[in-house]
Amino acid sequence: MKVAAGQFAVRREWQENADICIGLMHDAVGEGASLLVLPEAVLARDNDNPDWGVRSAQPLDGPFVNQLLSASQQNTLTTILTLHVPDGDGRVFNTLIAIRCGEIIARYNKLHLYDAFAMQESRNVNAGDELPPLIDVEGIKVGLMTCYDLRFPEMARRLVLDGASLLVLPAAWVRGPHKEMHWEVLVTARALENTCYVLAVGECGPRNIGNSLLVDPLGIATVRAAEVPALLTAEVDPQRIVAVRQALPVLANRRFSPPELAVKNR
């Protein structure tokens, strides 16, 4: 299966970002991709106003998503992205959606909020309280994660034990000391320790690192982007997963039960 990563710098106005997303969808179809992953929080960003994205939140039946759904009616491409969705009292969810054939086929509210490195996502964002679903793309089970989720190996392991062969991760990985190293190490670790593919797609621009990449089940990056806008395509091969899991049966050899999501009150 061919997958695509659409890396770009999110703009201030949602209509510009909708146009970019639709253009990347069109280009991914032209490249023969079955799955396109876009960055995190693609609705709106103002690097001089950190609350702008939250203030620009739209419901899932709002104009931003409706334009993407209309574009997706033209083909069978599955597109994954996140955006801020209102949750009342001026607060929002960071919601991942998967769209295909004009419909939202899956949604997930980000579990792990980025309260780290002197940032506090939870100031305006409510955490989700459910594990993300798996989706099927051309017979391959895909597990859904968002950005900071990458730092929690229990989540990736649970999704793989539930059947995922490919983990996808829209992200807006903030620049900082050693942060590019963290990104590459963590994406590689989640792939290697679970003997699965990981497609991690980061926003680029002045605030975030970009560096989107696809890592295979032996921890090998098969394609990667730099710090500028790009559309990457690569192959996900189910037989590669089978061969690696035969040679490196860590899932079969493990001695721990599947991780469970802790119950947490808002």
Rank of each mutant, 00 (worst) to 15 (best):
H112P: 01
G139P: 04
E130T: 13
V168L: 08
L111Y: 00
I99H: 01
A98Q: 07
V174I: 12
D162K: 13
N124G: 07
L81W: 05
E121V: 05
L83I: 15
V92G: 05
H84G: 00
I104T: 09
M119I: 10
W183K: 05
H178S: 09
P177N: 08
D115N: 15
W173N: 03
L186E: 11
A156K: 07
L167P: 00
T95P: 03
R91S: 10
V137I: 14
Q120M: 11
V174P: 00
A106P: 05
G102M: 07
I105W: 05
I104D: 01
H112Y: 11
F152G: 01
G176Q: 10
L161G: 03
D136R: 08
V160K: 06
N124H: 13
F152D: 12
E130L: 15
M181P: 01
G128W: 06
E184Q: 12
V168T: 12
F93L: 09
T82F: 11
P177T: 08
V168Q: 07
P86D: 05
L81A: 04
D87R: 06
G90H: 03
E121N: 05
E130A: 15
P86H: 09
D89K: 11
P170A: 03
G139I: 12
K141R: 14
D162Y: 09
R175H: 15
L111N: 02
M155V: 11
I140E: 11
A171F: 02
W183S: 04
A164K: 08
S165Y: 00
T95S: 14
K141I: 03
D149P: 12
A172W: 00
M155S: 07
Y114M: 06
R123W: 04
D129K: 12
D89M: 09
M145P: 01
H178E: 13
A172I: 02
Y114P: 01
P153W: 07
N124P: 05
L113T: 02
L159P: 00
C101H: 14
M181H: 14
V168P: 07
V142F: 11
D129G: 08
D162H: 08
A98E: 03
L161V: 06
G139S: 06
A171T: 09
Y108E: 03
G90R: 07
I140P: 00
D115Y: 07
E130K: 14
P170N: 03
I140L: 15
Y114N: 03
Y108R: 06
D115Q: 10
V137S: 11
G176W: 10
I104L: 07
